[in-house]
Design a protein around this nucleic acid. Structure first.
Length: 165
DNA sequence: GCCAACGTTGGC
DNA sequence: GCCAACGTTGGC
C-alpha cells in the first residue's frame, strides 16, 4: 500500500469533478517520470488530489487507485491533444490508471503549508520549479498533510479512510 | 552525443 | 500575464 500525489488543474478537472464522475481515467500524462510512477501504482493505493494552477494551489482531496496501469488509448487518437505519433499499439508508450474519490478534505492544505511541514522537505512537489505531476508521497508526508487539513487524527489513518469507502 | 531552440508547467 | 524551470526535439 503506497501513497501518491496527483496534480490536476481545478479549472479543467478538480476534486469535485472526481466526486461527480465517481471514477476517472487518469489519462494524458506525457512525461516519462510521471508515467513510471503511474506504472508503480497498485489498486487501493491512495492519492492526494492536488489542485495546481489554483489560487491557492494545494491538496483538496483524497483519491484511491481503482485500476492499475494500462494503456492510455488517447495516444493513438490523432485528434486528441494527447496523440503521440511515435507510439504504436504494439508498443504503447503511455499508461494511465483509474481513480475514484475517497473524501474531500475539510480544508485545502496549501502548497505554502506543505512547504512549512518538515516532512515535505525534499519532496519533488515543494522543490523549486518541479513540474512532476505524479509523484510518490511518504507515509509521514501523507499523515502530516491530512492532519493539517483538519481531519481528526483517527480519520487521517488510511485504514479508516479505506474502511469508510 | 551535444546543445540551442522550443514548448509546457505552474507558482507568483 | 509573466517568466523561471524543466523536458523534449532535432540539427549537426
Amino acid at each position: 500500500m503506497r501513497y501518491w500525489l496527483l496534480k490536476s488543474e481545478p479549472d479543467v478537472f478538480g476534486y469535485p469533478d472526481l466526486e461527480r464522475a465517481g471514477r476517472e481515467p487518469w489519462n494524458g500524462v506525457r512525461n516519462y517520470q510521471a508515467r513510471n510512477f503511474l506504472r508503480e501504482m497498485a489498486e487501493d493505493d491512495l492519492c492526494l488530489f492536488y489542485h495546481s494552477n489554483a489560487k491557492p494551489p494545494g491538496v483538496a482531496g483524497v483519491a484511491r487507485v481503482v485500476r492499475a496501469a494500462h494503456t492510455d488509448n488517447l495516444q493513438f487518437e490523432a485528434s486528441s491533444p494527447y496523440f503521440d505519433p511515435k507510439s504504436t499499439p504494439e508498443a504503447p508508450r503511455w499508461s494511465m490508471v483509474e481513480v475514484a474519490p475517497v473524501q474531500a478534505l475539510p480544508r485545502v492544505v496549501t502548497l505554502d503549508e506543505l512547504r512549512a511541514l518538515p516532512e515535505w522537505a525534499g519532496s519533488p512537489l515543494t522543490g523549486k520549479g518541479s513540474r512532476l505531476s505524479v509523484l510518490p508521497v511518504t507515509a509521514e508526508q501523507w499523515h502530516s498533510a491530512l492532519l493539517a487539513s483538519g481531519l481528526a487524527p483517527e480519520d487521517a489513518e488510511h485504514h479508516l479512510l479505506t474502511a469508510g469507502l
